[in-house]
């Protein structure tokens, strides 16, 4: 019995020795490919997350360590739009899966209170079906986990889906503007290239500084 076990050990040592020149890259590749992070071990982002209500703060100033920054996939707010049926959770991040759960805030924008553009979208067949009926002057309430915000619609526009120039200034500017958008029109069956945008100016809510 000794010889076969010795042969086994020598065989594996020979294999190890022959792989030594490429052992490091092999190990790196193995660690990358078999890290254990997969569909069985990773939960769907924000699965089960529900919006538990706002602090009710309507004024004041918050620093980055005064509140918990939303996690990707979490329901961190609730939005209602006057003159429409919109009353839905606001989810941080957007993806095919997240769009099923509510209105999604693009991670290429900022959270309410940051003094810049906030981009929130949803499907025209679900949560933002009545967005195209919003009138200028309508109030938009966004309750978040860290404060209550009010915006007012000051203009609407219909833009092509690849026309970022139509809202780039508001998204990247130094004035807080809430941009709500959805596919347009909502009364036809088509893969439409158009998007309905409602531009909303900031009215009230605590300001947020993420850098202090």
């Amino acid at each position: 019995m000794l010889f076969p076990v010795v042969f086994l050990l020598c065989g594996y040592m020979l294999l190890f020795a022959s792989l030594t020149p490429i052992l490091e890259p092999l190990l790196s590749a193995y660690r990358l490919a078999f890290s254990g992070a997969n569909v069985e071990t990773i939960d769907e982002p924000g699965a089960g997350s529900i919006f538990n209500g706002s602090t009710g703060l309507t004024t004041g100033h918050l620093n980055w360590n005064d509140f918990e920054f939303p996690e990707y996939g979490s329901a961190f707010g609730r939005i209602t739009v006057e003159g429409t049926d919109i009353d839905t959770d606001v989810i941080y991040g957007d993806s095919t899966a997240l769009l099923k759960r509510g209105a999604c805030m693009s991670m290429y924008s900022h959270i309410p209170g940051c003094g810049s553009g906030i981009l929130i979208g949803a499907h025209n067949n679900t949560y933002f079906h009545t967005l195209p009926y919003v009138k200028e002057g309508a109030t938009v309430h966004v309750e978040t986990t860290y404060g209550s915000y009010v915006y007012r619609v000051y203009k609407t526009a219909i833009l092509k889906n690849d026309d970022s120039a139509g809202y780039r200034n508001e998204l990247n500017g130094d004035k807080e503007v809430l941009l709500l958008y959805t596919c347009y029109p909502n009364d036809t069956i088509a893969s439409t290239p158009y998007r309905f945008f409602a531009f909303c100016e900031y009215v009230s809510g605590p300001t947020v500084n993420l850098y202090e």
Partner: peptide
């Protein structure tokens, strides 16, 4: 018999350690 052990040992260890189940595919 050594060949039997060589063919059996590594795959069995990999199966018991569930190496296949730790593949990183989401």
């Amino acid at each position: 018999s050594a060949a039997t052990l060589m063919l059996l040992t590594a795959p069995l260890i990999a199966l018991i350690a569930d190496i296949g189940g730790s593949i990183s595919i989401s």
